[in-house]
């Protein structure tokens, strides 16, 4: 996939800012929407989690004083709904994260920077 959204070759957007700031934001968006399209998740059930999490985050002071990242909340909501539906387990996620991080440090060690 040629998604250059952060580098100097990023496609300029008409009418302003980039849609996604980082590749992980676009992936997390794409995963959730693709799951809704294929019927694995219902858009409404995902959205309910999203609304709940956004509401919670806004009660915190950091929403006003620190970086408030919509897609971090989006990703968290996606985890919530996948766990709740039993589509993935906590253990699978934790093991997956460990694997990803191991692969990154391996890549860093061999001077590849892909994330």
């Amino acid at each position: 996939m040629n998604l250059d959204v952060t580098g100097p070759a990023a496609v300029p957007r008409k009418n302003g800012e980039l849609v996604f700031e980082t590749p992980w934001e676009s992936r997390s968006f794409g995963i959730a929407v693709a799951l809704c399209k294929s019927g694995v998740l219902g858009w409404e059930e995902f959205r309910t989690h999203l609304i709940g999490n956004i509401g919670k985050s806004e009660k915190e002071d950091f929403a006003k004083t620190h970086e408030w990242n919509y897609y971090a909340i989006w990703e968290d909501s996606l985890e919530h709904v996948l766990l709740e539906k039993g589509i993935v387990t906590k253990q699978e996620i934790e093991e997956g994260v460990t694997r990803v991080e191991a692969s990154w440090s391996h890549e860093e060690g061999s001077h590849h920077h892909s994330h």
């Binding site: 693709a34 799951l35 694995v40 993935v88």
Partner: peptide
């Protein structure tokens, strides 16, 4: 970012998603 990538690979392994489908949405 690691959590997103982990979720993606788990869902791919389970056959619930394809990389192409995500690419296409994005």
């Amino acid at each position: 970012a690691a959590r997103v990538q982990a979720l993606e690979s788990i869902l791919l392994e389970k056959g619930l998603l394809s990389s192409d489908a995500i690419d296409k949405v994005v």
